[in-house]
Structures are given as structure tokens and as C-alpha cells.
Simulated assay, not measured.
Amino acid sequence: MKEIEMKMLDMSTVLRPSNSFALVLEEVGDEKRKLALIIGAAEAQSIKMGELNYNPPRPFTHDLMLNVIKAGGIQCMKGIIYEVRNGIYYSYLYIRRADGEVEVVDARTSDVIALSLRAGFPLYVYEDILEREQLRNISTDGSTYTLTVNSVDMDTLKKAMEEAVAAEDYERASQLRDEIRKREDEGKDNR
């Protein structure tokens, strides 16, 4: 699969009423497709610290992890977002061990981004995921856009369905209801 390099573009203010942030990644190159990830406050703080190149007086978790990696003779090579399912992005961290062997480690996407900002290794997404999940209907000033249903969690879907019913947008409400049922059925199958 073709890998598309991404960079951090922006992070929103808190989305109400939850304690979440929208992290926007942008394609490196001419197309500039964008991808939004919904992350928690702790993850947002760590990513922001990496973006600002902030050196805390004592190592935070990602700083500690990079110190251990370096001490072990390991090198972070790249991160790849390889899947999106039910609003959760899945990533691999590629590392080179001291003996030269390459290992692929499953990791939270927010951790891969936080490490990438600190260590300077590239972040990629498979092109089919970027094409399917990219932001759409972006306003000219970039302040509003449409997220794909797959990129949001169940609580957000349920809230959006309630809002659609209240606005009497029954077509949208039924689409959201179907997505909620599909995820609930998948959850039952995984038990």
C-alpha cells in the first residue's frame, strides 16, 4: 500500500461537552489532504509539548520512552496509521534494534505522533485510509469541516443523532442510528 507522509497542522480547542481535542494532520506535498483525529486532553498536552519542543524539568512519559529507546541503541524510523475502526486510529511504530533488525510495534496513534514530534521521524498514513477518512467540506478559512462517521466515537454519534432528531433531520438521524447499531452488533460479535 502506498504511504503518504503527514505532518501536524493544528489542534482545536476543547470540543464541548467532552474533554476532547481535534488534531488535524495534513499531507506533505501538493495535495494537502487533511485527516482529523479526536484525542483526549492528556494526549493533546503531550503532543503540544512535542510540537513546542518543550523540555520539562523532569521527563514526561514520551521523553522517558525516548531516553530508554536511545539508551538501548534503538532508533525510531517511522510511524504508519494503518487502520481506522469505530473512531479509533491504529498505528505501527517502526524501530531499528541495536542489531540492525527492524521491528514493527503496534501503538496508539497519539503516542506515535508525540514521539514523532520529539524524535523527528516521519509519520505516514496508507493512501486508501487518507482518501476515505480525509476532511471534506472545508471552509475557506479552515474553521469548519466535515468528519467522516468512522472517525468519531459512539458518544459523539449518539449526541449527533439526538441533535438530528431535534432538528427534524430524520434522514441524517437514521444514518447515524444505522451506524450506531452496526457498531453495537460488531461489539457483540467480538465477545
Score class of each variant (00 low, 15 high):
D30W: 08
G29P: 07
C76N: 02
D111W: 01
L130W: 09
P56H: 07
E26N: 06
E163Y: 05
P17A: 04
D63C: 01
V28G: 08
A36V: 11
F121H: 10
V28S: 07
P122C: 09
V165F: 03
L117I: 08
A166K: 15
D189T: 06
G73Y: 04
A71S: 03
E168Q: 14
Y54P: 02
R181E: 13
D189W: 14
D155F: 15
G50A: 01
R136W: 08
K182C: 00
L37Y: 08
N137K: 04
Y145S: 08
L35P: 03
I39M: 04
E31R: 11
S91F: 02
G29Q: 05
K32R: 13
L52G: 01
E186C: 11
A164D: 07
I95V: 12
E162Y: 12
I95T: 09
Y126H: 09
I138S: 01
L35W: 07
E5M: 14
D153V: 03
G87T: 08
Y145K: 01
M1R: 07
T140K: 14
T140M: 14
K2T: 15
N55D: 14
S139D: 04
L66G: 05
G142K: 03
A166N: 14
K48D: 13
Y124S: 05
R132I: 09
R96H: 09
F21V: 09
E101V: 13
E5N: 02
R58W: 13
E179C: 07
E26L: 02
A166V: 09
V102L: 14
A166G: 10
E5L: 04
K2Q: 12
G142C: 04
D141Q: 10
L176M: 07
D141I: 00
R16G: 10
M8D: 11
Y90L: 08
Y92I: 13
E131M: 04
L15V: 14
P57L: 09
M11V: 05
D30C: 10
Q175C: 02
E171L: 06
N67K: 12
L147M: 14
L123R: 01
G87A: 11
R191W: 13
D128I: 08
S143A: 05
K159R: 15
S116P: 04
E51Y: 05
I88S: 01
G142I: 00
A36R: 08
D155E: 08
I4F: 03
F60C: 10
R97F: 03
R96L: 06
F121C: 02
R58K: 12
T156V: 15
V104E: 13
T13P: 07
N67Q: 06
T109D: 00
M154H: 12
D155G: 13
R183E: 05
I74A: 02
L37P: 00
E133P: 02
V152G: 05
V152D: 00
N137M: 03
D30K: 15
T146S: 11
E162L: 14
N190Q: 15
K158R: 15
A44K: 06
I88G: 06
R183D: 11
R172N: 10
T13N: 12
R181H: 06
Q45E: 12
I81E: 03
D106A: 10
S12G: 09
R172M: 11
F121P: 02
V104C: 05
I95H: 07
G40I: 00
A71E: 13
K2A: 11
L64I: 12
K70I: 03
D178K: 10
V149I: 15
K2F: 10
I39E: 00
Y89M: 03
D99V: 04
A167N: 11
L25I: 06
